[in-house]
């Protein structure tokens, strides 16, 4: 009998881990809670000189940003370069997903929300205001061995809905198509499905939990097609042209590449930002940071 109870141990251990994970997930948002209202009332705010604020006045404080995980790279370089401009300001970033970032800024649990999709009507109605920081192309990627190099948006839609299931129908080899994508809730997935017009109709072969997994698995399977943020695409996979337009920085910027999305910083209408947060927002949307944003693989809008 005793051995039986010993058998419970790993089962319980698995459960503990499970619950611990769940608890982590829950505590993430409250941890980002700050008191922007306090700092806002103490300092003189409403400084409207856009670029100069970042250079002249010494600011201090903490800016909490929360949202899209796709924006991790962009936020990384912005945070890093901003430290040189305003050493007294600490910018925190927590990647919780676009939806919860917007939710956070509306609820006041963070200073600036980060969204890698356009705001929904329901969100703008609640006072969410978008500031475009960068543009990001969603590249459609295939294995380098794949002969197909150009697809139309309709063909991509047909592949993802399962209407087309063999590469020979698209001018490639006679091989079944392995349709890869991200899991439900991913910003890249919702951006891709929305732009291509296949929301909720996708017949995925496999789903992956991160952009890196999608790229890695497309690189490892000659039958595969996937999508990933343009900035994350490397030489291990081939980005196909969409409607004859190759996804590059230039084609994203001029709007000719069809599958693209904005990287937004979201604030709430009527809520005054702390001087530090205001200055960081102005810094991030100023033309000065174009090179910085390009270094992160995204495209600056101006």
């Amino acid at each position: 009998m005793k051995t039986i109870y010993r058998a419970f141990a790993p089962v319980m251990a698995a459960l503990v881990l499970c619950a611990a994970l769940a608890a982590c997930g829950q505590s993430a948002a409250p941890a980002a809670v700050t008191a922007p209202a306090d700092t806002a009332s103490e300092n003189d705010t409403g400084d409207s000189a856009p670029v100069e604020t970042t250079g002249t006045a010494e600011l201090s404080g903490t800016v909490n940003t929360d949202g899209s995980t796709s924006m991790a790279d962009v936020m990384g370089v912005l945070t890093e370069t901003y430290r040189e401009v305003q050493p007294g300001v600490t910018v925190n970033y927590s990647g919780t997903g676009s939806g919860s970032g917007i939710e956070g800024v509306l609820a006041g649990t963070c200073d600036i929300g980060l969204s890698s999709r356009e705001l929904k009507d329901s969100e703008t109605e609640q006072g969410a205001v978008a500031h475009v920081v960068a543009l990001d192309g969603v590249a459609v990627i295939v294995n380098p061995e794949n002969g197909v190099a150009d697809l139309t948006v309709e063909q991509i839609a047909d592949i993802y809905t399962g209407k087309v299931s063999n590469w020979s129908e698209l001018g490639g080899d006679d091989a079944p198509i392995a349709v890869y994508g991200r899991e439900d809730g991913s910003g890249t997935r919702s951006a891709f499905e929305e732009i291509v017009g296949v929301e909720g109709e996708c017949a995925y072969t496999n789903e992956y939990g991160s952009t890196g997994d999608v790229i890695g698995n497309v690189a490892g399977n000659a039958n595969a097609i996937g999508y990933a943020s343009l900035s994350a695409v490397d030489d291990s996979v081939k980005a196909v042209a969409v409607g004859g337009v190759t996804p590059t920085e230039a084609t994203v910027k001029d709007g000719s590449y069809a599958i693209q999305r904005p990287f937004l910083m979201v604030t709430k209408d009527g809520v005054e930002l702390s001087p530090a947060a205001q200055a960081f927002l102005e810094y991030a949307t100023s033309p000065d940071v174009a090179e910085t944003i390009a270094a992160a693989g995204a495209v600056a809008p101006n």
Binding site: C18, L21, A22, G25, Q26, A28, A29, T69, T96, G97, G99, S100, E103, E183, D184, G185, S186, G187, E207, Y208, G209
Partner: peptide, 11 residues
């Protein structure tokens, strides 16, 4: 649980 936990919105 594992695959959707990261990106599912809080609450």
């Amino acid at each position: 649980i594992a695959i959707e936990l990261n990106y599912s919105a809080e609450g």
